[in-house]
Nucleic acid binder design. Sequence first.
DNA 1: TCCTTATGTACAA
DNA 2: TGTACCTAAGGAC
Length: 268
Amino acid sequence: MPEGHTIHRLAADYRERFGGRPVRASSPQGKFADAAALLDGAVLEGAEAHGKHLFLGFGGEWVHIHLGLFGKVNFGDAPAPPPADTVRLRLANPRSYVDLRGPTSCALLTDGEKQAIHDRLGPDPLRPGDDPDRAWKRISRSRTTIAALLLDQKIIAGVGNVYRAEVLFRHGVDPYRAGKDLTRAEWTAIWTDLAALMREGVRDNRIDTVRPEHTPEAMGRPPRVDDHGGEVYVYRRANLPCHICTTPVRTAELAARNLFWCPSCQRR
DNA sequence: TCCTTATGTACAA
DNA sequence: TGTACCTAAGGAC
């Protein structure tokens, strides 16, 4: 489930369960064993997210975690069960444990290395004070499709394949439109909407994008269940009828990712 | 039990 | 553009 909202939620959960106290650290899978030995007994001073990157602060050192496509984090109450042998990093204290599996990256960074990651990421709708104009400056000059730009973490950090498809639907924007053909008002609305949707995503730990007036109940249609856990308009609904106009939802591959959109509701 | 798929990214050619 | 990486769930047999 890792889009930006998941990572911000994880940062809050790490803070709440482990912040301000020493942790036991281990790497049952072995790939992070040296660092885990170093961290064992250290105090977790803070946890922070920027886009899909998670940073756990231990006295001037940072554990940098990126879940990639497969990574998962699982929290639980003590006593911790014996870890599966795929667990890259387990933290534990007398109250809680947390297991990290399958991350694309899990590494110990200095302050400078952490800063370098911030520097190459675009503004994040979930970071208070991040400036949508930084993204607009690049989008408004780009001939690249808005669908591709939204997934480019250098332009905007934290948006993934679900939020991309859903926010473009909610604003009636054809995914193949070039960035430079968006209006500033459209971009402002998209950014504002992303901030609100993703904030809800942090709170609920899932992605819901369907407005109340378009729920199956409101539209007089049978209820549905989306298998990724949230209520959406187009994501992974290829060939199913659009919730608003019943046109079949289209799908295509764009830069090796699946794209979904309604050809009738979303216009150039 | 095997095969496919996935909310991601980096690097090579 | 293609491929490698990492894991688990769901569906086809």
